[in-house]
Design a protein around this nucleic acid. Sequence first.
DNA 1: GATGCTATGAAAC
DNA 2: CTAACGGTTTCATAGCATC
Length: 390
Amino acid sequence: MKENDMPLPHPTRSIALIDVNNFYVSCERVFNPKLVGVPVVVLSNNDGCAVARSNEAKALGVPMGEPWFKLKDLAKQHGIIGLSSNYALYADMSNRVMSILREYSPDQEVYSIDESFLDLTGFQSRDLISYGQHMRKRILKWTGLPVCVGIGSTKTLAKLANHCAKKRPVFNSVCNFNAMLPTELEHLLCQIDVGEIWGIGRKLAPKLQALGFNTVQDLKRANPDRLRQQFSVVLEKTIHELNGTVCIDLEEISPPKQQIMSSRSFGQPIRDYNSLAESITLYMSSAAVKLRRQQSFAGSVHVFIRTSPFKQDAPQYSNGITIPLPSATDNTMQLVNIALWGLKQIYRPNYDYAKAGVMLSELVTAQGVQNDLFSQSGANAENGKNCTLS
DNA sequence: GATGCTATGAAAC
DNA sequence: CTAACGGTTTCATAGCATC
């Protein structure tokens, strides 16, 4: 791809999206080179489902999210290796990658454990492909992880460019839409399925195809107003972003979570109240840690328990309860007690429970608490831990 | 008729 | 030997209740 060194028609932003290939699998391979070149999947909690697949595993047709027991035959046949996940390792590797990337731009959004946006606007456009190659080679050398780089004038386009970098060997893992001629880009976008666009998922893709929007180019040329009517604002924004109009900003500082959830499927079904209570206590403790780490206070607590929907013949029960708190708190003891009270309300004996969890919502930040306290002249300020919701 | 709350669904990683 | 199936989060909307 030849770089375009003509002046660009509009003041164009250059947003890069850097994404580690098959992140969990690649992490495992760094520490066990025997896994290189063979089909590998990393499994979810309790070795339940495939949450990451190597290219070899994908080529064998292993679907994302497939339960491991359904893969046993295929695995035996082709020697697919199933690994338990090691989230502490992945978090550590992620931190290394993110700090390397931070040196390439002061404007970074860490979007997920294996993805980061960088704003490269103002960097010399014709150099961006080599800049991207530099990142890629450095990350590979310093962490052992393979990444791809996509560059475009919006986040949606950067995502799409990243997809091209990954899927099309021509780009050698770095694809810059901004460096392509309009006709060249159009030709490319005609070959990509609508379903590949960020925000177009399993439900939306078939609906759009039914209306004749089969490729990215089709959707790019669609009438945003009309599709907003028919679908949603989200889709309207996507169309604008495909045309280079920024609708989704770079979020360098991640806003505090509005709700915090902790839940887990059990390795084996649980029937008795005490075991359930133990789990709920554990989940709430971890939720409370997350809550305090972002310096928030919870205004309501939700507790839920459920049997396995996959056991068709077993009696099913699923219930949850939301408990509003008179006063927002971040205190583990208080939160656990409330959750256990909630559990008592919804618990029914003689069911095989498969999953339980808690959710904290109506979160207010410590900042908000401060303001609240000032505005309410310190009412309910006992050890600064509680605040009244107004 | 406008506004607010809740439950639900779709999407993402 | 059999059965076995993730976890969080956000955002938008629809339906219902309320002012």
